[in-house]
Design a protein around this nucleic acid. Structure first.
Lengths: 208, 208
DNA sequence: CATATTATATAGACCGGTTGTCATATTTGC
DNA sequence: GCAAATATGACAACCGGTCTATATAATATG
């Protein structure tokens, strides 16, 4: 007896959700592609579609978080890690024929009537990613407020680049902006490292 | 006889598409909310759902494009216009209880199997918006390449900010990043205005 | 003014797809 | 060989998009 059915379903669902969002992914699609029968789904996921979606989204988010943490830990500068992450995402997008982008964006935008738990999982994803950026930026010398704001901007830019690349089915603009983003992040860090004694830590933009 | 049925349907569809994406918006929803009977749809839109979606999306895109063009024309600096645009979007998001974001993002992300024409309309939206930014940035002194790259980055950041704000149901981070974005854009323009005679116009990032 | 003709609007039937449930079969561990 | 765990596919109830037949308003025509 196949004991990995559950995992199969999760990974298939994760892939389809990433490609087509919450409403665009039907249980039939998942069952057909994972070659599992209908009833098995409700044995492994008594909560039905929403429970499966939560598990699948969590799994994808975990992978992305690990990758990002790894890149930030290894790279020479935070900006470099950001660029490498975007380049990796571009490669994934290209290889999948522009199907695989951000795992949570499609769910946030089309899953307005999805369960509250699903939305919570999506928020946790942003918490994790923005948190990693913030930590890296702060360790590189940015003020807490500057790191927070820049982290949010960086995450936003990456999300938007994935969206635009998918729309055009072309990663060229994404790669150009990635270079710019690297420079921008590292410049913001360098600038703040210069003027430590500056009095106002308020709304002053982190990028000069 | 009500002769505005068609317009009613379009505006209702536009709103719902913005909130729930392509698959998340059913004809039943549109018909119920616009208080129109079922059959009328296929009289006004013989192409069915996809034709209605195209019309509705075009309408919303047109409004956004006009607003953006207006802001860019009036504002003192391009960066200022960008900030004002983001602030306006944040206000719209807040007022609509975080339902109304970008009109094309949900369709791009969940409408993989939508008609080719729909995807084309979404691309045209980005063409228009990025084109407006590029023109404004170039007129302010940026090189063509720099303006193009920065325009794409700005559009991407705005898309991402809308997404993140919707996920958190909170526009605070969006507004903080908007201030940063204004500074970043205007700084990039000022920097390039300084070194006109620089030899390499290649992949040098526009933001110092 | 009466009638014919066209343009617009409406109601509801249709079929396929979607989710969730069930009774039953099969495997596994002991 | 037995009990628990898992697998299976048929089924019901519902919802989706599409279509056809009909009703009503607008306009033209004699």
């Amino acid at each position: 007896m196949r004991s990995n059915t559950r995992e199969w379903m999760i990974s298939t669902a994760a892939r389809l959700l990433q490609q087509r969002g919450y409403h665009g992914t039907s249980l039939n699609d998942i069952l057909t592609e994972s070659r599992a029968p209908r009833g098995s789904l409700y044995f492994h996921f008594p909560g039905g579609k929403d429970e499966l979606v939560v598990e699948a989204t969590r799994a994808t988010i975990g992978q992305t978080t690990s990758l990002l943490a790894d890149l930030l830990a290894r790279a020479e500068t935070p900006g470099r890690a950001v660029r490498e992450f975007v380049e990796g995402a571009a490669e994934m997008l290209r290889r999948s024929n522009f199907a695989l982008g951000c795992p949570v964006a499609p769910i946030i935008l089309d899953g307005a009537d999805a369960s509250e738990e699903i939305k919570q999982v999506c928020r946790e994803a942003f918490d994790a990613w923005i948190g990693l950026y913030r930590k890296a930026f702060a360790e590189a010398g940015l003020s807490p407020e500057g790191a927070e704001t820049l982290a949010c901007s960086v995450e936003a830019t990456i999300e938007g680049l994935l969206l635009i690349a998918k729309a055009y089915r072309d990663v060229t603009p994404m790669l150009r902006s990635a270079v710019e983003l690297e420079a921008s992040v590292d410049a913001a860090i360098a600038a703040q490292a210069g003027d430590r004694a500056e009095p106002d830590g308020a709304a002053r933009p982190a990028q000069p």
